[in-house]
Design a binder for these strands. Structure first.
Length: 127
DNA sequence: ACAATGACATAAG
DNA sequence: GCTTATGCCATTG
């Protein structure tokens, strides 16, 4: 359950996800590539699953490589994610697919993320 | 240390 | 395009 162990790869994953701009999306594999291994995608999903509700992480902007929502276990959550995405202006086709060519975040290298995240911690946005 | 688990990714049928 | 099978990584019992 994550506890206070957000020091390692988890913290880096959250940092990257926080930098995904409004109205854009990133894939699990993409985030994994930035924080560590291109093949630690499952770990990214695992990290997000342990988020608390007030974690200030835009988890809904993370989707799978096919451009679709990966939440199958709790159907309500998938629905919620879709609503959140549409609320940001992201269009899903009738199959619930997102066009990555249009909405995928270009991404940043880790040093850039780290710098931005440091600033974020200094002056967290929102309430 | 080993086996199982999970919001993945990719290849194959 | 969907379903299976296999590979990967970090965490947990």
């Amino acid at each position: 359950m994550v506890r206070r162990r957000d020091r390692g790869i988890f913290a880096r994953i959250y940092a990257v996800v926080r930098m995904i701009p409004h109205g854009q999306v990133a894939t699990y594999g993409q985030i994994a590539s930035i924080v560590a291994d291109p093949q630690a995608a499952r770990t990214v999903g695992w990290a997000l699953s342990g988020l608390s509700e007030d974690a200030r992480v835009p988890w809904h902007r993370v989707i799978n490589a096919r451009g679709r929502i990966s939440l199958r276990q709790h159907p309500g959550a998938a629905e919620k994610q879709r609503v959140l995405l549409e609320h940001e202006g992201i269009v899903l086709d009738r199959h619930g697919r997102i066009d990555l060519e249009t909405y995928q975040w270009e991404g940043l290298d880790w040093p850039a993320i780290e710098a931005l995240h440091t600033a974020w911690e200094k002056e967290p946005p929102g309430p």
